[in-house]
Simulated assay, not measured.
Amino acid sequence: MRTPFLFRFRESLAGLPSLLVLLALVLAGVQQSTRLKRHKDPTPVQIALLEALPPAPKVETPPPPEPQKKAEPPKPQAKPVPAPKPTPTVQDRPVAEAPAPLPALPQAAPRSAPVSAPAPQPVAQPTPAPPAPNTANAESQYVAKLRAHLNSIKRYPTGREASQLKPQGKVRVWFVLKRDGSVVDMGIDESSNSMLLDDAARKTINRAAFSAFPEGSWSGENTHRFTADLEFIPVSG
């Protein structure tokens, strides 16, 4: 039995499709490599036309200065010869003038009798001013009298409460006086911590009779503020 013709070349025919595919790939690669690609430059090129610059102006050099001519010295002029003066004749000569008379000598003034200088008058000496009063001493004496007067008229508080508590202490009071000695205002400067003693100090100021300010003291003040310390001691009995 005869084998078919194609059956005998079956192995060659089986590899033919692969060979065709390989040949197509080779042809496509060669065709791709031979194709020319256009190269594009992203940066634009600007072409500017520049005008031709004018030629630089020629600098003309000034010609050298001409040498100055020396001035010629002036020619000396000939002095004119003076004409001879005519000699005067006897008639032309002037007559000599007579000498001027001498001035008269001044006469001496008559001597006057010597004037006697006025006698110096005695200068009146100013009378000495009276001595100013010692205001500081007068003020201190007045304050001492006020305090002594208040301590002499103070009274220890009376009553059942005072006899039971028997408070003791010192009260500093302040009071404002006019120049005539009248009381304007008063108050407690330092309390004794006892209402009985503070009240007794106020009653002492109201009871007091103050004299007028001494003359010249606290000048320029219509009123003056004073202080006094009043000490209260209970009476033992």
Rank of each mutant, 00 (worst) to 15 (best):
S194E: 00
V184G: 04
P84T: 07
V171K: 00
F5C: 08
P76G: 06
F213H: 01
R207V: 05
Q164M: 11
L177M: 02
M195L: 15
L50H: 06
P73Y: 03
N222L: 09
E190G: 04
K154E: 03
A208Y: 06
A119T: 05
R155K: 14
I205C: 03
I233V: 13
L19W: 04
A201V: 08
A113Q: 09
E72V: 15
R2T: 15
L105V: 13
Q32H: 12
A100W: 08
S192T: 01
P131E: 15
P54D: 05
S116P: 08
K166M: 06
R225G: 01
L230P: 00
A119E: 06
P42C: 04
P101F: 04
L23I: 09
P120L: 04
R172P: 04
A100S: 12
V95Y: 03
P133M: 11
P103Y: 02
E190F: 13
Q91I: 13
P157A: 02
H39R: 15
V115K: 09
L27H: 06
L16I: 05
G29W: 10
A124N: 10
V171D: 00
S219H: 08
V45Y: 04
Q107M: 10
P131F: 05
A98Q: 11
A108K: 06
Q121D: 06
A148Y: 09
S12G: 13
A124H: 11
L165T: 11
T204R: 00
E60N: 11
A138Q: 10
K85I: 14
T89H: 05
K58C: 01
M195Y: 10
P167Q: 03
G220R: 02
R8T: 13
N222R: 10
T158L: 08
L19S: 06
Q68S: 11
N222E: 12
L50M: 09
A138N: 07
L23W: 07
M186I: 12
P64F: 10
P62N: 04
L36S: 14
A98I: 05
Q125Y: 13
P122I: 09
P94Q: 01
Q77C: 06
L53W: 07
P82S: 08
G159E: 02
V173F: 02
E231F: 10
A71K: 15
S33Q: 14
Y156T: 00
L165Q: 12
A129N: 08
D185Y: 06
S12C: 07
Q121E: 12
V59E: 14
S140Q: 15
Q121W: 03
P157H: 04
D189I: 09
K145L: 11
L177P: 00
L36K: 15
A24K: 00
V30I: 15
P84E: 11
A52M: 10
A24R: 01
I205N: 02
T204G: 00
N134M: 03
Q46L: 12
P42K: 11
R147I: 14
P74H: 03
H149C: 01
R93W: 12
A208W: 08
P62F: 03
G169H: 02
D180Y: 03
K75R: 14
I188W: 03
P114F: 02
Q77L: 15
A144V: 14
K75Y: 07
P131T: 01
P99R: 07
L150Q: 00
M195D: 15
P114C: 01
A124M: 13
M195Q: 14
L6G: 09
K85G: 07
T227M: 06
P133E: 14
G187H: 09
T43A: 13
Q125D: 08
Q164A: 12
L177H: 01
Y156H: 04
G237L: 06
P103A: 04
A108Y: 00
L50S: 03
